[in-house]
Amino acid sequence: MGRALEGRVAVVTGGASGIGRATAERFAQEGADVVVGDIAPADETVALVEKAGRSALYVRTDTTDEQQCDALVAAAVERFGRVDVGVASAGVASAAGRSNVQNRAAGEQSTHLVNLDAEAFGRVLDINVTGVMLTDRALARQMLAQGTGGSIVNIASSAAKIPLAGAAPYCVSKAGVFMLTKVLALELAATGVRVNAVGPGYTATPMIAGIEDDATALGMAMSITPMNRLGRPEEIAASCLFLASDESSFTTGQLLLPAGGQFTG
């Protein structure tokens, strides 16, 4: 049986670390060349792709800048001639960078909506929603121009469906990613371009770095995670692979939730 993405070209934003890096590596293992977009250097990700025997290109990209999103896709086409798959993984937990569950565990209410700075709220939505929209738009335009279909995967969160006190910007932004996914999927359904989302639960990435050393925060996270462990980035990458590949050829506009059983109740 051949590899799931043999000979395809994938663009992954947020690919310098965490879920984005794991996805880039897995896609390469499945036969794809990978273009990595991130504001941070992605030397390690590029090395992992090349170790898997595929070609990689890093393009510094701020996904909140539409020209940079367009330039990312253009660079992919210039280098590899086409784009078949896109994963919009760039995102933040909060404007300050600290994870929401750690803020809550510390007993802080500064991030509760009644105390929230409007600029902080807007910053999260700008990155998590507008950045995904601009990424998706650039990818979709290229896929439509090619006329051969394609698959776009957005990284949402289980927080798209679960309200978390003190995490309004994150929850609202990830719910926005899910609805953006559904609308774009509907608009593109007849074109062969599929659009889906992955909604991870608590996953061991830099976004929640240090949580395992914070018993209160970890306990709060596990209280809504029946499997009672953090997800691994490679597990989320496997969900992205399913949605990116032909194995999900009749699936669009959906949210896949690798979240350790959070929605079993």
Rank of each mutant, 00 (worst) to 15 (best):
residue 185 A to Y: 07
residue 191 T to Q: 11
residue 183 V to C: 03
residue 177 V to S: 03
residue 165 A to K: 09
residue 189 A to T: 14
residue 180 L to V: 06
residue 178 F to D: 06
residue 169 P to T: 12
residue 167 A to L: 03
residue 170 Y to S: 05
residue 195 V to Y: 00
residue 190 A to C: 07
residue 183 V to A: 08
residue 167 A to K: 06
residue 183 V to P: 01
residue 165 A to P: 08
residue 184 L to C: 05
residue 169 P to R: 04
residue 173 S to H: 04
residue 189 A to G: 14
residue 177 V to M: 05
residue 185 A to D: 12
residue 170 Y to Q: 00
residue 189 A to V: 15
residue 183 V to H: 06
residue 187 E to V: 02
residue 186 L to S: 08
residue 191 T to F: 03
residue 175 A to I: 00
residue 184 L to I: 08
residue 180 L to T: 02
residue 179 M to V: 09
residue 189 A to P: 13
residue 193 V to M: 00
residue 174 K to E: 02
residue 195 V to G: 00
residue 195 V to R: 04
residue 189 A to C: 13
residue 166 G to R: 09
residue 167 A to C: 07
residue 185 A to M: 09
residue 178 F to E: 11
residue 174 K to R: 01
residue 170 Y to N: 03
residue 166 G to W: 10
residue 174 K to A: 02
residue 188 L to W: 13
residue 167 A to T: 08
residue 193 V to R: 02
residue 187 E to D: 15
residue 176 G to Y: 01
residue 173 S to D: 08
residue 177 V to A: 01
residue 169 P to S: 10
residue 168 A to V: 14
residue 192 G to Y: 06
residue 173 S to N: 09
residue 191 T to S: 15
residue 194 R to M: 09
residue 184 L to Y: 03
residue 180 L to P: 00
residue 188 L to V: 15
residue 178 F to R: 08
residue 165 A to Y: 07
residue 175 A to P: 05
residue 164 L to E: 13
residue 171 C to V: 14
residue 180 L to K: 04
residue 187 E to N: 02
residue 195 V to W: 04
residue 190 A to K: 15
residue 173 S to G: 07
residue 192 G to L: 01
residue 187 E to A: 13
residue 172 V to D: 13
residue 167 A to Q: 06
